[in-house]
Amino acid sequence: MIRVLVVDDSAFMRNMITKFLTSNHQIAVAGTARNGEEALRKIEELRPDVVTLDIEMPVMDGKETLKRIMAKESLPVIMVSSLTQRGAEITIECLEIGAIDFVAKPSGSISVDLYKVREELIEKVLTAGRTKLKARPAPALKPKPEAHQEVVAESVIRPARSGSAKQLVCIGTSTGGPKALQRVLPKLPKTLKAPVFVVQHMPAGFTASLANRLNHLSEVTVKEAENGERAQDGCVYIAPGGKNMAVHLEQGELVISLDDRDTVSRHKPSVDYLFNSLAPLKSFDKIAVIMTGMGSDGTEGVKSLLQHSGGTVIAESAESCVVFGMPKAVINNGLANEIKHVDEIAAAIMTYMKKERA
């Protein structure tokens, strides 16, 4: 049983969230709190497995409360955010501080239509409850060579190297992704001779804030992708929340297209959707990276990449993943060339860039 503390200044919202969560037999609400100060006391008293934490509260807001929680213990926290620009910016900051994930209120601080995110909230609480967080970011681990041999299946497809081909990098991630991207993208040099395409599972209204934050921290340019724009080397394009991103070739240039079609994986944006669009581009060598996240979005896309035109596949290791779902699916299907701690992924990308250019 996963025991949850629900923190929100609105009695209506506390009751709604409690009702939704307790409808699942695997979840029990251990208690509720009206503000951050009360939440900190209840955490000490009740020792919950997961906390749902409203951002906008009197006395002590969600961001300050989260800082205090993270300073004392490794407790999975899910932020409950309003769909405003300021709410999005604070949410991204909270993910950096250590929140495992977030749920967006559909219509403001008191959302009578919260039922729209009921299943999402339940799913994220279940995932958080099964997650063992580390109190501090782990140092980069260097697995022994024989350990790699035990994990990487023998059927792994080796990259096709064309030598003179142009290159591109594509990254897929979900739960824990914003913080993982912060540990990868700032390590890429501004002289990167390839565009980077990123799918981070996130709803509409939040990816622009994520891109702005990452751009501030990085040498490469990071931006939310726009429909019809031409991709440039040294630029990272993040798929907008609620939209699928595809890339096609037009007069020798890579052009981004966005749409809101539903996908088999149910994610929007979808990693599979992006990777499938890149698969036919035989004149480009591809470095595909699958990082932390629940589920298996990206596995079918990686298969398509390798079957159509080859490529190099880097999967994040279990040691650094918040949720070892998406990378595990790629590894178990024998698709990973490299398994790397998140702090080693940027260096691995650059190593393959050098190999391809040599």
Rank of each mutant, 00 (worst) to 15 (best):
M1L: 10
M1D: 06
V4M: 07
L5E: 06
V6S: 03
D9Q: 10
S10W: 13
A11R: 13
A11W: 02
M16V: 15
I17G: 02
T18L: 01
T18F: 00
L21F: 04
A28R: 14
V29P: 01
G36C: 05
G36W: 10
A39F: 04
I43G: 00
E44H: 07
E45M: 03
L46K: 08
R47D: 04
P48D: 00
L53M: 09
I55K: 08
D61P: 06
K63N: 04
E64G: 00
T65S: 14
L66Q: 01
I69E: 02
L75S: 08
V80H: 00
T84N: 08
Q85L: 10
R86V: 12
E89S: 08
E93H: 08
E96K: 11
F102T: 05
V103Y: 07
A104T: 09
A104K: 10
K105V: 05
K105S: 02
G108Q: 02
S109M: 10
I110L: 13
V112K: 15
Y115T: 13
K116Y: 12
V117Q: 12
E123M: 11
A135N: 13
A135T: 11
P137G: 11
P137M: 12
S155R: 09
S155G: 13
R161E: 09
Q167E: 11
V169M: 07
I171F: 11
I171G: 09
G172F: 04
G172T: 03
T175N: 01
L181V: 09
Q182C: 10
Q182T: 06
R183Y: 03
P186C: 06
L192S: 11
K193G: 14
A194P: 07
H201M: 10
G205V: 06
F206T: 01
A208Y: 01
A208I: 08
A211I: 05
N212F: 01
N215S: 13
L217H: 10
L217T: 04
S218M: 07
A231S: 10
Q232T: 14
G234T: 11
V236P: 00
Y237P: 00
G241C: 00
M245P: 01
H248V: 03
G252Q: 05
V255H: 02
D260S: 15
R261H: 11
D262S: 15
R266Q: 14
H267P: 10
H267D: 02
P269Q: 02
P269N: 03
D272F: 04
A279H: 01
A279T: 01
D285Q: 15
A288M: 11
G295F: 13
L306C: 07
L306I: 11
S309D: 07
G310P: 03
G310S: 09
T312P: 08
A315L: 02
S317K: 07
E319R: 14
G325E: 06
P327L: 06
P327Q: 01
V330Y: 02
I331V: 15
N333E: 15
G334Y: 13
L335W: 12
N337C: 14
K340Y: 03
H341V: 08
V342G: 07
E344S: 14
I349S: 07
